[in-house]
């Protein structure tokens, strides 16, 4: 059962990443691109966790945690830049 489900899940997540990249490249506005980047982070977390299950290794958890943190900080910094025209005041 799992051997059947995991490839399907990989395919769905890959499609999700592709859709986010399409929005990232197409825009049209800056907030759209930031949102696409944020979605890309979250998709990557899901992919890493699934890879961890697939390979039976808990090593990928730390990477997922780091991406979650860095992605959030990156999104906030970019939004602040759009709002104020400056990141560090």
């Amino acid at each position: 059962m799992l051997t059947l489900v995991i490839p399907i899940a990989f395919a769905l997540l890959g499609a999700a990443v592709a859709l986010s990249v399409w929005r990232l490249l197409r825009g049209p506005s800056a907030p759209d691109r930031i949102l696409a980047l944020d979605t890309l982070y979250v998709n990557t977390i899901a992919l890493l966790v699934l890879l961890g299950i697939h390979l039976g290794s808990a090593l990928y958890f730390e990477a997922a945690l780091l991406i979650a943190m860095m992605g959030f900080v990156g999104t906030v910094a970019l939004c602040k830049y759009l709002l104020r025209g400056d990141i560090i005041e």
Partner: peptide, 28 residues
């Protein structure tokens, strides 16, 4: 195994639908 499969499939499906919304809807 059925529970695991369901959770993995539901997770992947929701993630995909979220990204589909990002690509498909019409304004920011």
């Amino acid at each position: 195994e059925y529970l695991l499969s369901f959770l993995i499939l539901a997770g992947a499906l929701f993630t995909f639908i979220g990204s589909l919304g990002l690509a498909r809807l019409r304004d920011f």
